[in-house]
Design a protein around this nucleic acid. Structure first.
Length: 192
DNA sequence: CCCTGATTCGC
DNA sequence: GCGAATCAGG
C-alpha cells in the first residue's frame, strides 16, 4: 500500500481526532502503526497541540547556529502558526436525548447485567455515571476496543452500547468490567 | 502483558 | 519517502 491522497487525508483526519496510530493503521489497512507514526512525523503533524501550553521554554542547545534564520522576513505580523489547531474534540452534540430517564426498567430481559444483585454499590454508581458519557454506539459501530456493554432495551429505540474505550483485553470499559466480572458471590445459595 | 508515540536507519 | 526495529514511557 502506498500513501495515496485519500489515505493521507484519512490519516490526517483521524490523527486530528486523536485516534491512536494503531487505530489509524487498522482503519487504513495494509500498514502498521509504525508506518502511520512514521508518516505522521514526516508530515510534520506530530504535535497534536497547536498553540497550547507553550509554557516550556527551551531555547538552549545549538551553541553555533551559523546562518541566521530569519523567522519573520515578512513585514506583516504573523499569528505565529495556527497550524492544524483543528477541533479540540468538542464532544459530539448529544442528540438532546428526549427520553433521558433511561433508567433500566425492572428486571427485564437485560443482558449480563446482574440487575440489582449485590454488586459494589460504588461500581453501580460508577456505571450510571459513565453511561451518561457513553458513546452510545450502535451494534455496527462497535470495534475491537469499544465497550460492548449494552444499555437499554434491545426492543426499544433507546438501546445502545457503551462504546467507551475498553479495558485492555476485556470487552468492556473499566466501569463495566467492574460490574461484569464479579466474583459470583451473592448467589452462593445454589439450592439445587 | 497490553498499549502509546518517538526515533533511528537501512532500504 | 518509507517503515521495521527499537526505544521510552503508561
Amino acid at each position: 500500500m502506498s500513501w495515496t491522497d485519500e489515505r493521507v487525508e484519512l490519516l490526517k483526519k483521524m490523527w486530528g481526532e486523536g485516534q491512536s496510530a494503531s487505530q489509524i493503521a487498522k482503519e487504513l489497512g495494509g500498514v502498521t502503526r509504525n508506518a502511520v507514526i512514521g508518516k505522521v512525523h514526516r508530515l510534520g503533524l506530530s504535535n497534536r497541540n497547536a498553540g497550547a501550553a507553550p509554557a516550556k521554554a527551551e531555547a538552549k542547545e545549538k551553541p553555533a547556529p551559523k546562518a541566521e534564520a530569519k523567522p519573520k522576513p515578512g513585514p506583516k505580523t504573523e499569528p505565529a502558526r495556527p497550524a492544524g489547531a483543528a477541533a479540540p474534540a468538542a464532544a459530539e452534540a448529544k442528540p438532546a436525548a428526549p427520553a433521558r430517564k433511561q433508567i433500566i426498567p425492572a428486571g427485564q430481559p437485560l443482558p449480563p447485567q446482574p440487575s440489582a444483585n449485590e454488586i459494589s454499590p460504588e461500581a453501580l454508581a460508577k456505571v450510571n455515571e459513565i453511561e451518561k458519557k457513553a458513546k452510545k454506539l450502535s451494534l455496527m459501530e462497535l470495534t475491537e476496543r469499544t465497550c460492548k456493554w449494552p444499555v437499554g432495551d434491545p426492543a426499544t429505540e433507546n438501546f445502545w452500547f457503551c462504546g467507551l474505550p475498553v479495558q485492555q483485553g476485556k470487552p468492556y470499559c473499566e466501569a463495566h468490567v467492574g460490574v461484569a466480572f464479579q466474583p459470583m458471590s451473592s448467589r452462593k445459595d445454589r439450592r439445587r
